Computed example of a mutant assay.
Amino acid sequence: MGPMTLPGLGSLTPVPALERPDLLAAPVVTALEGWSAADRVGVVEIDPALADTAACAEAYDLPLDSGANCVLVGGRRGGDERVAACVVRADTRADVNNVVRRLLDVRKASFLAMDQAVTESSMEYGGITPLGLPPQWRVLVDEAATGIDVAVIGSGVRHSKILLPGSLLAELPGSEVVPGLAR
């Protein structure tokens, strides 16, 4: 069997992610090195000023529904902080106040503050990805995101994007597929 070809999208043509660790945050490299599906994950360099979903989609001729955003949500129960990374299609929003709050079993769930998200994930804001997050965090993947042919997700840094089959989002280490996570 020959090497797998990585799917491109729009004007983006990825290379195997592990061939360009300079385009990935350190915890993302570590996660990919330990993941059997890493050979199906590509990375592509982008202009960091275009890292936000809408700007990236427009600049690189990407369908908006190809993006999968990762947002970090937290809440407290007793003295414990509970954090989840929520992966949803870019044309939807995570249902933080209902679905995520119930899954975390907290009274109130909210997005992590930028400084906490960056410090605790060891990733750049706007590039946070479900790959390589702290192991105690839950990774909740909206079922709809797993149906994306070629998903564009963060790489841990703003100057690149990861491309992978949406079905792989369900296979991320520790991921939980949640129907109706987004609305």
Score class of each variant (00 low, 15 high):
Pro134Tyr: 12
Gly126Phe: 03
Leu24Cys: 11
Ala90Cys: 13
Glu120Lys: 14
Val157Lys: 00
Asp142Glu: 02
Ala38Asp: 08
Ser11Arg: 13
Pro7Lys: 10
Ala145Arg: 07
Pro165Ala: 12
Gly147Trp: 06
Gln116Tyr: 08
Arg20Met: 11
Val100Tyr: 00
Phe111Ser: 03
Glu176Ile: 15
Leu32Ala: 06
Val118Gly: 04
Ala109Val: 09
Pro63Arg: 09
Ile148Asn: 04
Asn97Thr: 09
Leu24Lys: 05
Thr146Tyr: 02
Pro134His: 11
Pro16Gly: 04
Val41Glu: 06
Pro21Leu: 06
Gly67Leu: 13
Met123Trp: 08
Val43Thr: 02
Gln136Val: 15
Ala85Phe: 01
Gly132Pro: 01
Ala90Asp: 01
Asp65Leu: 10
Ala31Leu: 10
Gly42Trp: 07
Thr119Ser: 11
Leu131Gln: 05
Gly67Gln: 07
Asp61Ile: 08
Leu6Gln: 05
Val141Ile: 12
Ala84Glu: 04
Asp39Pro: 08
Ser36Gly: 11
Arg93Tyr: 08
Leu72Ile: 15
Asp52Pro: 00
Leu172Trp: 05
Gly154Met: 12
Glu120Gln: 13
Val178Met: 02
Arg89Pro: 03
Asn97Leu: 04
Gly74Tyr: 07
Val118Met: 05
Pro173Gln: 09
Arg93Trp: 10
Gly147Asn: 13
Pro179Met: 09
Glu33Phe: 10
Pro134Thr: 14
Thr5Gly: 07
Ala59Met: 04
His159Ser: 13
Ala37Glu: 15
Val87Gly: 00
Gln136Leu: 15
Leu140Glu: 04
Asp22His: 12
Arg93Pro: 01
Val41Gly: 09
Asn98Val: 15
Thr13Leu: 15
Asp65Arg: 11
Gly126Glu: 03
Gln116His: 08
Ile148Thr: 10
Ala90Phe: 06
Gly127Phe: 02
Ala25Val: 09
Val87Ala: 06
Val141Arg: 00
